[in-house]
């Protein structure tokens, strides 16, 4: 089972290293031809405007949407979560995106880099031990559709991880920690 990591821009190498550590073969996805060779896909952290632009420029948006509609599991972290959201606020009105999950992503929900933070919080679907979450100029998820299950909330109730069938979105970066649980969760989806 080859796990594709979208490698247009961002921290794709960290995802690959984590996957390799837990024994999953990986492939960097940059062009539509690579998409045919993977059974799952991770959309990494990065800049959502940049990744969206490159997705559009090299014809990846429609093939990717089609694969996800056919049931391919897909996981977006931070910028990846923004690109998966059907609605984006505080972004660029014209920013290309995948529009897959029935959620609204609020970009830079915490402010500038000075507001980036780490916190330990539990995640639904993992064991009870809290997960170290790294938030970097992170979004939050709002207006979750009926088919979307929130998996993690901040203390103020804002949703930072959610799942809709074969789609997973996290506003934080498990790939920047040594905790493999979120990656294992994705591989079992």
């Amino acid at each position: 089972m080859t796990v594709g990591v979208l490698a247009l821009q961002g921290d794709f190498r960290e995802h690959e290293e984590m996957l390799r550590r837990i024994g999953a073969p990986t492939l960097q996805v940059r062009l539509p031809k690579h998409l045919d060779q993977v059974e799952r896909l991770i959309i990494p952290g990065g800049e959502s405007t940049t990744i969206g632009k490159l997705l559009a420029m090299y014809g990846l948006i429609e093939p990717l949407r089609a694969r996800v509609r056919e049931g391919m599991p897909v996981w977006g972290t931070c910028a990846g979560a923004i690109l998966m959201a059907q609605r984006i606020v505080d972004g660029r009105a014209d920013q290309p995106s995948l529009r897959l999950m029935d959620v609204t992503a609020r970009r830079n929900a915490f402010g500038s880099q000075l507001e980036s933070f780490e916190i330990d919080l539990p995640v639904e679907g993992l064991d009870s031990k809290p997960l170290r979450m790294v938030f970097i100029r992170a979004p939050v998820l709002e207006d979750l559709g009926d088919d979307v299950t929130p998996l993690a909330r901040l203390e103020d109730g804002r949703v930072v991880a959610a799942r809709q069938a074969n789609m997973l979105a996290t506003c934080f970066h498990p790939e920047l920690t040594s905790d493999e649980r979120m990656h294992r969760y994705f591989l079992e989806m």
């Binding site: 952290g45 990065g46 507001e115 980036s116 780490e118």
Partner: peptide, 20 residues
């Protein structure tokens, strides 16, 4: 909550990788 940690500082640069 820990703000402006080494991980978040280095982490933002990680997010810029492969970019201009």
């Amino acid at each position: 909550m820990d703000k402006s940690t080494w991980t978040t500082k280095v982490g933002l640069a990680q997010m810029l990788k492969g970019g201009v």
